[in-house]
Design a binder for these strands. Structure first.
Lengths: 344, 344
DNA sequence: AGCGCGTCTGAAAGCGCTTGCAGAATGCGC
DNA sequence: GCGCATTCTGCAAGCGCTTTCAGACGCGCT
């Protein structure tokens, strides 16, 4: 109704009987201003509940205090953990975060980058696995390149390296390999893997690291041992059901993601298979809640918040001299109650 | 390095040999433009990888396709569920979401509103319990009022009504009361409540609903039965430890939040108290993961995503004729394995 | 008292885009 | 072939703010 437009700097200046320039300077602390004038401006501003128009500021050359973050799904605890780190660093630096959730739709992802570009976000963070898809990569590059050429920062968590940007990489391959080694040491020889869609780089890396390490110890993983499913709790649940219909008789299941492992655990329980008594189960990520499962989940612990913090750091200190920087953060195998020696 | 400024509409226009106005009209589809001109503009734009400067657009009068969402903690699954709904609706409407995480700091919350105001976000959503604090309420109102006067939409999930804004309210009181009734019916008479800080309206409502219902059935809840702790998993964990040191001997524990209940469950297990054998446990929210706990958690199920969707709807269809609208969404008691009749 | 210097303040020029307005171009009927 | 109605197109005025530049002012000095 009384959609009276926003209070402008000009009104403040008029009300304080100073010039626009002076008002601006007071509010930004750019230059010294005689104290009585400053006083007048400050009180006029607060009286009118003035807030600068960020768009005008941005247009006029002031830098833009917003960064964009694109993830697959805000409600996935893996992402949530990373986002937490991102938010903290952003908050500490007075940055506003624009968060977009793509629900794993590659088109949306590109579209969001475009919007962020329009917003002249000072940085864009891509979080979560990239897609192994030529077409997508090109479309993404077509947005990202002009963005960076225009001075935008890009940082990425856990992506394919073919996007030549600053990257924070959890060591998926190595982590999965270390997990495989630990599982072998427990005595397991027959494994099943619950994998997400192979189009995701993360899945590939973890799966590859795991099976290579197995192979190095003379244990082959066949296609039959690998169940592909959605990258979610329900995906894990369904994957176990699928697995149980197959001929394979694993003694240990590796879900490439904790979230999938959670679903798997429930499916196993409902099938009357005790964990770890009859079947060991391991995940990856060390999402907070897996500690509270029964049994607590063996997994590869990733410093989720730190991943986010580092990515944000890279984006902020965007001193991209030349090469794109890659920061590798290792995971650590954490053996908990969900794994044990196989029933002999 | 080659921080060449962004491509502007003017360059596009020049490259297409048309006027600025025409280029603008082509790109916005405002008016019909002769097809050959349109053609030239379109191809020039794509060749130059042009993206309009959203700030300039906003300044020049075009409306702003961004909304702000403020929550306590992105990594809390309760919020994550709501955010999911918000994101979906936002995405469907071509809106960019700016998400801020306050980590429960009231000052930050106000500060973020101010930033969002500066961004001229077309709507601001406040998610999560408000603070029962006069000073905070005033500070908040001081930001929100001018914002709305300037045409901004505000919607809120689960807040105190004293902020006169469109609200989506989960029925905390009623849900807690219904839960109390169900628990009484199971035969419980001695309860403990793990509560979050009383400064949060949500805590008050749930606690109030629960204890009032108990009282209506002749069961009194004393201060000793209530343990106050942080609103987190660790808070729940600590609260159980505290509870165990007290004289009370409850047969049933109500954690006002699923997240707290998760911590509580682990603490109980570690204390060697079986659930539900020796102690029943109930939560509130029905966060996805509680189904996968052992035992699965009895709780009051809230339609989390819908809460978010509705809030976003309210904000978008901001037809605030006069009164602020309040949408109440009921919760539903879901009895799962974590509750049983008390050991007689 | 007069001069030079340093510090403040204000006028004005954009930042990139939208849009009202007026002039150009097109098509039609006669 | 001419006049008029009907589209299109281009000019130019802002949107609200920052910032350069030059003028105004006050000071200490000679």
């Amino acid at each position: 109704m009384n959609a009276r437009p926003h209070v402008t700097l000009e009104e403040v200046a008029r009300s304080a009987r100073v010039s626009l320039a002076t008002a601006s300077r007071v509010l930004n602390g750019t230059t010294n201003v005689r104290s009585d004038l400053r006083e007048r401006v400050v009180s006029a501003a607060s009286e009118l509940a003035y807030t600068p128009n960020a768009h005008a500021q941005a247009l006029a050359g002031g830098s833009q205090p917003t960064v964009g973050v694109i993830c697959h799904d805000v409600s996935d605890p893996y992402f949530a953990g990373i986002a937490r780190g991102v938010m903290r660093v952003a908050g500490d630096n007075g940055l506003l975060v624009m968060l977009a959730s793509t629900f794993r739709d590659p088109h949306k992802e590109v579209a969001y980058v475009s919007m962020l570009r329009a917003q002249r976000a000072s940085a864009i963070l891509l979080i979560g696995s990239g897609f192994e898809d030529k077409g997508w990569e090109q479309a993404m590059a077509a947005e990202l390149d002009p963005y960076r050429r225009g001075g935008g920062q890009v940082a990425v968590v856990s992506r394919h390296r073919s996007l030549k940007v600053d990257t924070v990489q959890p060591e998926n391959r190595e982590g999965a390999a270390a997990l495989a080694k630990a599982l072998l040491k427990l005595g397991h020889r027959r494994f099943a893997v619950l994998a997400g869609p192979r189009a995701l780089t993360t899945v590939n890396d973890r799966l590859g690291g795991f099976s290579d390490e197995l192979a190095a110890h003379g244990v082959e993983l066949t296609e039959d041992d690998i169940v592909e499913a959605a990258f979610t709790r329900d995906g894990g649940y369904a994957a176990v059901q699928e697995m149980l219909t197959r001929q394979t008789e694993p003694t240990c299941v590796f879900a490439v993601t904790d979230v999938m492992a959670i679903g798997a655990l429930t499916a196993l329980r409902e099938a009357g298979i005790s964990v770890p008594g009859e079947m060991s189960l391991a995940g990856f990520d060390d999402v907070p809640v897996v500690r509270d499962l029964t049994p607590p989940l063996t997994t590869v612990s990733l410093p989720l918040e730190e991943l986010g913090e580092r990515a944000m750091d890279l984006a902020i200190k965007g001193a991209r001299g030349g090469r794109s920087r890659i920061l590798r953060l290792p995971g650590e195998v954490v053996l908990r109650g969900s794994t044990a020696a196989p029933k002999s």
